[in-house]
Design a protein around this nucleic acid. Structure first.
Lengths: 139, 139
DNA sequence: GCGGCAAATTAGAATCATTCCTATTTTGAT
DNA sequence: ATCAAAATAGGAATGATTCTAATTTGCCGC
């Protein structure tokens, strides 16, 4: 008599992603982020998912975000020392901060570009992560 | 009877750099940073220049660092949300974090590379600053 | 050389994102 | 159903940085 265990009207989220058990709280964080290109902060995530899950705590949102980041389901983006933001785009890309509007835009690399090709790295260097951040304005 | 007003045995620092008046505190911060490739934090700068200037305050170190950064005499470097670090190297370059030792190394770009060439930026974008950060280990 | 003014400095309080703590709840395996 | 491990909630603690208010300093014209 049971179909699949979670008959929600929203997009179904698997019970596990990249080895991370998708609890209700993690689902809500994940679902919200996947639909956002605005790179929300932890607090913005918190405010939003409280609508669906009023008892959720900010600490849990931080826990969920950390778990999702560690399982490479989302990315954490830091700009200067502002609050961390979270990004569902896993492709290699950079972030452009428009100083005028305060918005953040993903920046792709031109095709065929390998980042490490242009860097003068010491030999035997194993790069695990690259972050490129740009600041400026859309004229 | 007076020769030049500051008869210090160390490298003489001009009274003004890039339009910034070099007070005693700013001089100490500047002198220390110029001799360092370790990208010190504000607190490390503070600890160090207290030797020469015991009455200096941490707030002043922050003020000096901010002034030096704004006048483009040094650069501020952020890695994730760790304490900011400060860098005397004004050439365009990136930063590599060696996870094993915790040290930070400047990374040059290969000659002839123009960063904006490889990025797929929207038209009419004015870039004011680029930051490239790498994390990994020296194998 | 001297009063006045703006800029710089100081010490400590305040801020605020994030982490820690810990009791409670939920989950999955047996 | 039972038990251990994992996850959660809420509140306290942390720590880099910034703010505030009160001195101090440097510099100007007299």
């Amino acid at each position: 008599m049971m179909t699949n265990g979670l008959q929600n009207r929203q997009t179904a989220i698997p019970e596990e992603i990249n080895g991370l058990r998708m609890t209700r709280q993690r689902q809500e964080v994940y679902r919200f982020l996947m639909g956002e290109r605005t790179h929300p902060t932890a607090n913005e995530v918190f405010m939003k998912i409280k609508e669906a899950l009023p008892s959720v705590s900010l600490a849990t949102v931080y826990n969920c975000l950390e778990a999702l980041v560690q399982h490479k389901i989302i990315r954490q983006v830091n700009f200067d020392r502002e609050p961390s933001r979270y990004c569902p785009n896993l492709d290699e890309h950079g972030h452009f901060h428009d100083e005028t509007t305060g918005t953040i835009h993903d920046v792709k690399f031109k095709p065929g570009i390998n980042l490490t090709d242009i860097l003068d790295l010491p030999p035997n260097t194993v790069i695990k992560d690259i972050e490129i951040t740009l600041r400026g304005q859309l004229a």
